[in-house]
């Protein structure tokens, strides 16, 4: 391996710094995962991300339909939650504890398995437990995989255990979620929030006030809420806008759902779910809309939307919705987009 550059032109180095850089060079070159392993991980994560998106990673569910006193019109809801900084205490899953049980391995084999497990799960360390079952030694390798790693620890551990068993090394993997009481932003807590509002015997104004109150309790104080009586029915609109700067911390996705009920049962109908994101980069603003109606989902990207007129944006979005078979009408006013179902 080539020697380090001893110093930049005209500069001197400290011996510690030079030796440390050399150590970093050597350590960072140790035990790289194979390209095939990296590609497998990338493709798995990509698939999981796409599945989470389709499952409605960020959902506002709105439905007013199929009751005599409800309008056939369905409100379009766009919900995005701004980052909030009010800390609260709540319980969440912080990671997965993985235990890999092995029998009949030698010391060197255990070392090798531990090293591979550590590499696959990107763990900081792997702990070894030695046990005796019916007089025969067995071993358990344990490690903790934080949720933030984004890895499907259970799947990886199971696949690894199977590959070991297939090669003649009996192995079983057990993965246990670890839940802890943590303090975090209200936004983080609201990730799993479902807001349920009963419409029984309430006026539109009362329903609107209750939705506002429930959102405020969840820390969302800047939502635009509107509940109006139209054409013998009721229309509900809920909107919270967010804007992301490319390269800046992206607000994490949330699972806030709004569910209206009558007589204790959810009100359903051919609702329209829309998620709108505006991402600003050096080259301009990209508008991204995820639209779902009656099981059909489409993602519409409109690059350089900041250079387009309202009419151009409207035409582009309408054309893409038609292509996707989604029946909706689009309005754009000063860049603000509204999409409503035609049902």
């Amino acid at each position: 391996m080539a020697n380090l550059h001893s110093s930049a032109p005209g500069e001197e180095s400290t011996p510690d710094l030079t030796n440390d850089l050399r150590a970093l060079r050597d350590e960072s070159a140790r035990d790289p995962l194979s390209l095939a392993q990296h590609v497998v991980t990338i493709r798995t994560r990509r698939l999981q991300a796409a599945q989470a998106r389709r499952a409605g990673f960020m959902v506002i569910k709105e439905s007013v339909k199929s009751r005599p006193w409800l309008a056939s019109g369905v409100a379009v809801v766009v919900l995005a939650v701004a980052m909030l900084i009010i800390p609260i205490s709540y319980t969440r899953t912080t990671g997965q504890q993985v235990a890999l049980k092995l029998v009949g391995l030698s010391d060197s084999q255990l070392r090798a398995v531990a090293a591979q497990l550590k590499a696959l799960l990107h763990s900081d360390h792997v702990a070894l437990l030695t046990m005796s079952e019916s007089g025969a030694p067995s071993y358990v390798l344990e490690t903790f995989v934080p949720s933030a790693s984004g890895l499907n620890a259970a799947m990886i551990a199971q696949a690894f255990a199977k590959s070991l068993s297939d090669r003649g090394y009996p192995a079983t993997a057990v993965t246990t979620p670890v839940r802890e009481r943590v303090s975090g932003s209200v936004y983080a807590y609201a990730k799993d929030l479902v807001i349920q509002v009963s419409t029984d015997g309430k006026t539109s104004a009362q329903i609107e006030a209750e939705i506002r109150q429930r959102l405020a309790e969840a820390g969302i104080t800047d939502a635009q809420v509107s509940v109006t009586d139209e054409g013998g029915g009721r229309k509900v609109k809920l909107s919270v806008q967010r804007t992301a700067q490319a390269g800046q911390p992206q607000p994490p996705e949330s699972n806030i759902s709004l569910q209206l009920t009558k007589d204790g049962k959810p009100i359903t109908g051919p609702g329209l779910m829309v998620e709108i994101k505006r991402t600003h980069t050096a080259s301009g603003m990209t508008l991204t809309l995820d639209v779902t109606q009656a099981g059909k989902t489409t993602t519409i990207d409109v690059p350089h939307a900041d250079t387009m007129t309202d009419a151009q944006i409207k035409a582009e979005v309408e054309a893409r919705l038609r292509q996707a078979g989604i029946d909706a009408r689009v309005s754009v006013t000063n860049g603000q987009i509204g999409i409503e179902s035609n049902h």
Binding site: D31, K118, Y169
Partner: peptide, 21 residues
Amino acid sequence: ARPARAIDTGMMHESLAIPVK
């Protein structure tokens, strides 16, 4: 970090490739 409930056998070393039967 998670408490390590390991029995220190001094066996952890990263540099070996896994042998196969």
